[in-house]
């Protein structure tokens, strides 16, 4: 599929902007479970969507722009390490899954991505805190990741269905 470059640039910028808005809205929500790292991850709807609707390079670009600008907005620079470690593992997993399965597996790909994100986060936490004790949180993170990932995947699937209808 060949698209003019300007159009692609505009679409990618728009997606970055939307995911940043979601990220900021989510910051205002009170934490549901008092476990560090547990989040709904609304902004990841865009990441999942980008992995399925664009190529791998575009998805990685959107992801990096979002987390770097997002961490500037939230003022939480240490969270950047966790986001990068988790997010890269998650992106890698989802891009791999997309290669081997059709689009109707997007919900499960998203769940797998969320769990990989949690594993990456925990690995980063072990590195930052210099202790393996934080692994105790991994099951809590994975459980919440399954639920949040399912929700994110469902949202991304709905977006893909609606946008496909509109495009000629």
């Amino acid at each position: 599929m060949h698209r003019p470059d300007t159009r692609r640039l505009t679409e990618l910028s728009l997606l970055c902007a939307v995911s940043l808005i979601m990220f900021i809205i989510e910051m205002q929500l009170p934490p549901v479970v008092p476990v560090p790292g547990v989040k709904l991850g609304l902004a990841n709807i865009i990441t999942v969507y980008a992995v399925y609707a664009y190529n791998a390079r575009d998805a990685v670009m959107i992801f990096f722009v979002r987390i770097i600008i997002g961490s500037l907005f939230s003022g939480n620079v240490i969270a950047l390490i966790f986001s990068i470690c988790g997010g890269l593992l998650c992106l890698f997993g989802m891009i791999l899954i997309r290669r081997f399965t059709e689009i109707n597996m997007i919900v499960f790909a998203s769940v797998a991505g969320a769990v990989l994100h949690n594993i990456g986060q925990t690995a980063a936490a072990v590195f930052v805190m210099k202790t393996t004790a934080v692994i105790v949180y991994l099951p809590y993170l994975m459980l919440s990741g399954c639920i949040a990932g399912g929700f994110t995947g469902l949202c991304a699937w709905l977006i893909i269905k609606r946008i496909k209808k509109k495009q000629p």
Partner: peptide
Amino acid sequence: LIISCIAVFVIS
């Protein structure tokens, strides 16, 4: 993929 997702959910 489906089985591994369910397995991770149950295990956690």
